[in-house]
Design a protein around this nucleic acid. Structure first.
Lengths: 156, 156
DNA sequence: CGCAGTGAGTTGGAAAATCAAACTGAGTCG
DNA sequence: CGACTCAGTTTGATTTTCCAACTCACTGCG
């Protein structure tokens, strides 16, 4: 009885519950750029210090970031991405490309990422099975949990 | 004057400012799945109704979603992704794959997306120039704005 | 007609998160 | 010693979120 809130079970939701809080992905961006110190993170993300401390704790606990000491004696740490953290970087790249494309008319992209091949990265999401692009019209969703359809739950 | 907070200028930040608020990407997920009606969105995302209304307004204003009437007289609408919205779907797919990989040990993925090629989508982010995978170790960042380095601003 | 029901929100107030600035504490530098 | 750095923590004030209840337009049903 009483279904308080049971939204669709989904790894997108799970992922966002972890890294979707305000500033978390900006922290990851900075950490991937090599700016892993607390005060750098404050400056570069704009996060309030207390919020940042909270986010960092969560991300470390979840295994997305790890703390690395860069100085004993005046004990100092630096945050770095774990393997899991690094694997989120393609998500950031794709999001950046989307922002560049849709949130800026002109060519004033504030940051360009260069790929090992020598070109500016323009990420394309592809299907690992066929190599083709992952586009909406080529996708069909198959919810595995009972009761969760894609055309509308209809509940009954 | 007084520089209150000027974080790094970046399209990731801009994109997140728009679609990074709680529930926004879940709304987009549902809308891409074809569940674009208000009450469906409430049920499937778990968002409070007032928050959902606020998010929908923003996403429509920003051109990520559009309102489509599916009934005159008892005026009823449905939200659908615009082209810009659809182009965010690959981001969702990549995020879902990350969640499947890192937030679940077993193979109980709650939703499987099938690609036109017949296989379950396992998205890979590639460089459009060379076709190679976009991985951290192959990337070099080039901030375009002055004062924003990748090894630490140093401010001075 | 009268009245329960649906869809798409809006309203009101309590609870939680965010924000800014000041503070702490270990330790170094001059 | 006194000033400074870094990595946070504390303290209140401000904003958001959350939830339940309510509205409004309209559609059946009997």
């Amino acid at each position: 009885m009483a279904a308080p809130r049971n939204p669709r079970p989904c790894s997108i939701a799970d992922a966002l519950a972890l890294v979707g809080e305000k500033y978390s992905l900006l922290v990851l961006r900075e950490v991937c750029l090599g700016n892993g110190r607390f005060d750098q993170l404050v400056r570069n993300t704009g996060a309030p210090r207390d919020v940042l401390a909270t986010r960092l704790r969560r991300l470390v606990d979840a295994g997305v970031l790890a703390k690395h000491p860069y100085s004993e004696r005046p004990q100092r740490f630096e945050y770095r991405p774990t393997q899991a953290g690094l694997e989120l970087e393609p998500v950031l790249m794709t999001l950046m490309a989307w922002g560049d494309r849709h949130l800026r008319e002109d060519r004033d992209r504030p940051m360009v990422i260069e790929h090992a091949c020598g070109h500016a990265v323009v990420p394309v999401v592809t299907c690992s099975a066929c190599g083709g692009q992952v586009r909406h019209e080529d996708l069909t969703a198959h919810p595995q949990a009972p009761g969760w359809t894609v055309t509308g739950p209809t509940t009954a």
